[in-house]
Design a protein around this nucleic acid. Structure first.
Length: 260
DNA sequence: ATGGCTGCAGGATGCAGA
């Protein structure tokens, strides 16, 4: 089973590219972030025509997450724990049936948090704490699950081409790195780090200042696996090809293969 | 380069992104 995550930076602006990528990659499940549209404006029919079931949590103008799946999506939830229902559209999860049981898949768009020291930064850390509680609860239930998305955190210096450029940024603050570390240390597996030497492996290159041409990238899109999911991990890769496409997203897909 | 693009809302520029 091939599961991918992709911050597409506007699903309507990127529809052709998303469809082309799905046909080529033949992903079973694709978690999308930064839809930048309300649910009613989500181009669901285009994905249905490609054979995907669709679950979305949209928001006008920015944020927005979705799960596309060839398998039926069950038990869809659009809110993190303690979410009052009026929160930003950054979380959706669902369950699919797999051989021997069920697999929960969450599509996450963690807050950016800039500028450091602002309310936005506090919100970022608080949101990550809620995500940690979510992960802990599902670990306690011994579920097989996948946290896939744009975490907006550079975990280690090797996850940036020029780490010194990011020392003042919310994505690379000690507090941001620490909350990510605590999440992983609950017992999750960073799929990319598990299968390759991650130095030089990036998932985001800014549109500005020729960042792509200079390979001035960062690794901020991650797939974290619970132990029962990690047991099934056979491959993980970053698909840099899309960054060369016409009108690309500034993020590229991350893909994992699980032997279900 | 002190954010140098990009998408979106709205109908000009401002906001958000990372």
């Amino acid at each position: 089973m091939k599961i991918a995550t992709w911050n597409i930076n506007g699903v309507r602006a990127r529809l052709d590219g998303a469809a082309a990528w799905l046909k080529d990659a033949n992903a079973d499940i694709l978690c999308l972030q930064e839809l930048k549209c309300e649910d009613a404006a989500f181009p669901g029919e285009a994905f249905a025509d490609l054979g995907y079931n669709v679950a979305t949590r949209g928001q006008k103008g920015f944020n927005g997450v979705a799960i596309l799946s060839k398998l039926p999506l069950e038990d869809v939830s659009r809110h993190l724990s303690d979410d009052d229902g009026n929160d930003q559209a950054r979380f959706i999860d669902a369950v699919v049936s797999v051989a021997g049981g069920a697999l929960r898949v969450a599509s996450l768009y963690c807050p950016n948090g800039n500028p450091t020291g602002s309310d936005r930064f506090d919100y970022k850390l608080a949101w990550m704490e809620r995500l940690q509680a979510y992960a802990a609860a599902h670990l306690a239930a011994e579920e097989a699950f996948v946290l896939a998305g744009d975490f907006n955190i550079i975990p280690e210096p090797e996850d940036a081409r020029f780490p010194d450029n990011w020392t003042g940024d919310a994505l690379f603050q000690p507090e941001s790195r620490a909350v990510f570390r605590r999440l992983v240390n609950l017992g999750l597996t960073d799929a990319i780090r598990a299968v390759e030497a991650t130095a030089g492996s990036y998932t985001f290159w800014d549109y500005q200042a020729g960042a792509w041409q200079k390979n001035n990238g960062i690794r901020i899109d991650h797939v974290l696996l619970s132990p029962l999911a990690a047991d099934r991990l056979t491959d993980a890769a970053i698909d840099k090809r899309t960054r060369e496409w016409e009108k690309p997203s500034d993020h590229v897909p991350v893909v994992v293969d699980l032997a279900f």
